[in-house]
């Protein structure tokens, strides 16, 4: 079960939830997985037959990539369609995000009534920070962890072992579809509310880098969550582990407050941990300046650091996956 509603103030994160011990949750999510799984199967079968068409090595490789993209788009499209049935649920996000933002505005306005700057952050910068983290989380959130552990626990994962497509790619394509829906039915309405009701100014200082940073954060959130899901190869129940990570992430990522408010020593440690790349870094890139603890660097530099961390996380996740899969197939679960 995910205790997330109580765990984080930033509750615009959608989490499948188990109702009571024993019963599996979110039947809708279960159904979705299997339905888009079929789409994936169909798409990847198509891939096999047309691979041989390519003549030269390069042509084959290019065709391979084209086909892979087609597969990803097919899975994403079917995931989008499945979840579109639940798009009224997105209205919840359109209410929750702005409500959270509003409380933050009120708190900080009150606190700033006695000062101009807290740790070098102005009131406007503080409010912008909350607006950006809230909006970015609409774009980057997923529950790959919940989904993967559910597949492993119920044994449905077996069907993926038999497919000519890596499950991570499959899950990522699902996220693409799911978040496209989030973009249309959560992010955009919330953006309009932020701009027209809260008069937030949408002007990233370095737009290009900001987009790259959000994209990297998108991949990072996915990779971390997916890796947590992999733990289900070893653990019967991953609820506990997942809630620990969620708890750590909510404190250490900057989703609840700018990390600059934390004690310096803690900031220096957090600089080396991956959490900041899911919320703090994109928001700082948006504002145009980055610092954490004693580390201060230019926007291109921190985005590079983010890219290196994201790549490392992907490699570690793949290693973990291979170990886990060996265990999965060996145990014949």
């Amino acid at each position: 079960m995910s205790p997330s509603p109580n765990l984080s103030e930033n509750s615009n994160v959608e989490t499948p939830r188990r109702v009571s011990a024993g019963a599996a949750t979110g039947a809708d999510t279960d159904a979705n997985t299997s339905a888009s799984a079929n789409a994936g199967a169909v798409a990847s079968t198509g891939a096999d037959t047309s691979t041989s068409v390519g003549a030269g090595v390069v042509a084959v490789a290019a065709a391979g990539i084209r086909i892979k993209i087609r597969v990803i788009l097919a899975i994403a499209a079917s995931t989008y369609k499945e979840w579109a049935a639940y798009r009224t649920h997105s209205l919840v996000s359109v209410f929750v995000g702005p409500a959270y933002f509003l409380t933050q505005i009120c708190i900080w306005r009150a606190v700033y009534s006695g000062t101009d700057s807290i740790r070098g952050i102005s009131l406007d910068a503080m409010i912008t920070y909350y607006g950006v983290t809230t909006l970015v989380s609409y774009l980057t959130m997923d529950f790959a962890d919940w989904n993967l552990q559910m597949l492993i626990r119920t044994g449905k994962f077996t069907t993926f072992v038999l497919r000519p497509i890596h499950h991570r790619l499959f899950a990522f394509a699902q996220k693409l579809g799911h978040r496209t829906l989030g973009l249309l039915f959560e992010f955009l309405p919330a953006l309009l509310i932020f701009v027209f009701i809260f008069h937030m100014e949408i002007a990233p200082v370095r737009g290009g880098y900001f987009l790259v940073s959000v994209a990297l954060s998108y991949i990072m959130v996915f990779t971390v969550n997916y890796s947590i899901g992999i733990a289900a190869f070893w653990l019967v129940r991953t609820d506990g582990l997942r809630s620990v990570i969620k708890l750590l992430t909510s404190v250490c990522s900057g989703a609840l407050f700018p990390l600059l408010l934390l004690p310096d020593a803690l900031q220096r440690i957090l600089f080396f941990l991956p959490f900041q790349f899911t919320a703090y870094v994109p928001s700082m890139v948006y504002t145009g300046t980055y610092r954490l603890g004693t580390f201060s660097m230019g926007i291109p530099q921190i985005v590079c650091v983010q890219a290196v961390y994201t790549a490392t996380a992907l490699v570690l996740s793949e290693l973990l996956y291979r170990f886990g899969l060996k265990r999965f197939t060996a145990a014949g679960v």
Binding site: S11, R17, T88, H89, S93, A99
Partner: peptide
């Protein structure tokens, strides 16, 4: 509203105003 597992988020968002 069958199957909307997000109904509690509304509750959390509303009670958020009671935390301060």
């Amino acid at each position: 509203w069958v199957g909307n597992s997000r109904v509690f988020e509304i509750y959390d968002a509303v009670t958020l105003f009671g935390r301060y």
